[in-house]
Amino acid sequence: MSSVPLIEARAVSKIYQTKDGPVESLRLLDFAIAEGEFISVVGPSGCGKSTLLKMVAGLLPLTGGTLTLAGQAITGPQRDVGIVFQNAVLLAWRTVLDNILLQAEIRHMPSGEALAEAQRLIDMAGLTGFEGKYPWQLSGGMQQRASICRALLHDPSVLLMDEPFGALDALTREKMNLELQRIWLASKKTVMLITHSIPEAVFLSDRVIVMSERPSSITAIYAIDLPRPRTLDMMGSPEFAVLAKQVRSHFYTQGSLDH
């Protein structure tokens, strides 16, 4: 793993102004994500994981601290970032292909190249033959795969995922975890994944960031040194169990297991 930090957070904090006064969401976060690294962020719900992700995406301003992407301060939406939301957020009036091409249209990418790249991603995500279908004709897992294709179309170096599989059933979710690993191994993107699922975080990540309840800070960062590619069988291995237990212990001591 290269040690060049692609994303770097220094004393990042976020305070929301609400009717009942200021609410401190994030307190003094420090972390660095290396290029090509797969990072998961786990924490109780409402702890500001999504806020953090939106700040990295440049969709929310920081209250304090600095956040840099490839050495540049993040002040607005980034060219080099793709986002996957919890819901697939596909436009109902566009086919799968046209949904993926939305990225190209808005960014004014050359249409020939974009189409070729979209087709390549569709093949990679196993959506071949579904290009002309509408979102409501697809299963939840397929919708989310299409939204991953859309996030990758402009070849960003960073892929941000906000609980992308939270709405899927357990079996589909495991399958999607395998798919995501495959896509990541093939594309070597830097991934930041927000998740509620400890097994999912351990299974996919190089490192897992554990966050506390609000006002949240980073409680611990675990390196997951399991060999790649990982298989679902490995989830039953003692090493996996130990890592998952370590991560989970933080939630029990906090008195809230949000899973």
Binding site: K54, A57, I83, F85, V89, L91, R107
Partner: peptide, 22 residues
Amino acid sequence: DPDMLDLARSMGATRLQTFLKI
């Protein structure tokens, strides 16, 4: 859907693009 607007924003969409396409 606010997520759709965030999506458009993350792509760097102009107001007109967001309006016409979303």
